[in-house]
Design a protein around this nucleic acid. Structure first.
Lengths: 257, 257
DNA sequence: ACGCTAGAAATGTACGCACATTTAAGCTAG
DNA sequence: CTAGCTTAAATGTGCGTACATTTCTAGCGT
């Protein structure tokens, strides 16, 4: 291995330099196939194993690598579980958890331009966007009207996908490798329009959640989404504590008021 | 100092036993005035400084103690900032952040019994509850109808408090020392009743958030709250990322649809 | 070709030492 | 009596060693 050098003038601790360099190389994809062992790092960087372990310990607590006895450390498996997040994911996963099967009716799947949405994605108005509009069912009843815009340059491979049963994020990850890692949501309470009410089979006096969501992957805007969720059957649940912060738990399926 | 013993048969690592014992003693309040130094722990537990540092390192990353060079470790200052949490706090703090002044009209403040609410607090039906009902204003417009029940045995000192401008949690902490450390919320979208609509000055076709919340302090149910928030002017905002999880940011004040 | 076993390899735990750096206490001088 | 300096104490960093425990691998025998 090439011998790497660290700054020993005392500017920063050796283990911290090592840790930062490893993060850099890790993000560059250098360790995708095999993460070096402790002794290899000792050789490469010419530091003691204690220092190496101090750096690896931080990487471990940060969740970047996982280690076991007798086995070389490995890059932490991509955030599989926590990839889809937010209120929407909470709602839809709770539906599965409650035993109801989900499916969607695709009402539109094409490429079009929309200056307003493009601006929300920090893109030029003329840039083509992939547009997907679905009516999502939980069991036999409509649950939500879901409309998503993604830059066509990224999402074009999704044009011939079948979204009746698969989720957008799974398809996106499978066909393009893109995974959302950040996002923000605005959740509002609204009264659906008569057209929306008909579409969702809403009772006459029911409210709904209107959720706007912008998702990014590696600081690049990837999706802009608007979802209208029936408010008469579904609610958001959250738990919070001083330690764990605010966590959406299984969004509850409330039967009646 | 008394000499403490650890199990060296290999059942659990020494540093882990030490860490757990320190957590136990810390929770018992043994170190409220002074946390022992590393060398003192070396003497007490008869282990090497390396082992002590391993245990303290975990306590540090868990946020239980803070340490600095040349200074003995100290018990981390109690969770000062993160005490009030959740969607409600997010909403009301965002109102302040937007420059609007808040005040409340106290519609009821008394002690009564309510079997349904008591059950939700895991209490017997006959136990008296302090009941506080407020109409909360942001600026000159009503924002929310807020109803709170607390066990009278704990909250009786609040009976003569003036809730026109102070928050319940501040008053509760000041008069009884109780601080919420855990809770859960259910957030639903509803259409307010005509009476509620009149009270909140809602436009005819506006929805609202209905938030039910149960708060606990040290595993003891302390409050049950129902808040109805106007949905035409206020929204919940959240950010989430793979690292930080789901965080409610300043709940937005949306002007129009 | 397959299964089992013994050895090699890697990480986890635990001990020790030395020195740097910062804080806190004590002491001296004005 | 106070200000400033010196010294002691405590943590941070870094090195080394040894052994335990687990995993992987290679070779042996059937």
């Amino acid at each position: 291995m090439t011998e790497r050098r660290l700054d020993r003038t005392g500017g920063q601790p050796l283990w911290k330099q090592l840790q930062q360099d490893l993060v850099r190389r890790l993000r560059a994809g250098e360790f995708d196939d095999l993460f070096p062992g402790e002794l290899a790092l000792v050789e490469d960087y010419q530091v003691s194993r204690h220092t190496v372990r101090q750096a690896l310990g931080k990487l471990r607590t940060d969740g970047l690598i996982v280690a076991e006895r007798g086995r070389q450390p490995r890059v932490a498996t991509a955030p599989e579980i926590r990839q889809p997040m937010g209120a929407l994911y909470s709602l839809f996963s709770s539906v599965e958890a409650s035993g109801l099967t989900q499916h969607s009716v695709v009402r539109a799947l094409d490429v079009r331009a929309d200056g307003v949405i493009a601006a929300r994605l920090d893109l030029e108005a003329s840039i083509p966007l992939l547009y997907l509009e679905r009516l999502r069912f939980a069991g036999d009843e409509p649950l939500a009207l879901d409309r998503v815009w993604l830059p066509a340059s990224l999402a074009e491979p999704l044009l011939d996908a079948d979204f009746t049963h698969t989720s957008l994020y799974n398809e996106l990850a499978a066909r393009t490798g893109i995974r959302l890692d950040h996002g923000r949501e605005d959740i509002r309470a609204v009264v659906p329009t008569p057209a929306e009410r008909t579409l969702l089979h809403c009772p006459p006096e029911a409210a709904a959640f209107s959720i706007n969501r912008q998702g990014t992957s590696q600081n690049r805007p990837v999706e802009w989404r608007h979802t209208l969720v029936r408010g008469d059957r579904f609610a958001l649940s959250a738990e919070f504590s001083a330690n764990t912060g605010y966590r959406l738990t299984a969004g509850a399926v409330t039967h009646t008021a």
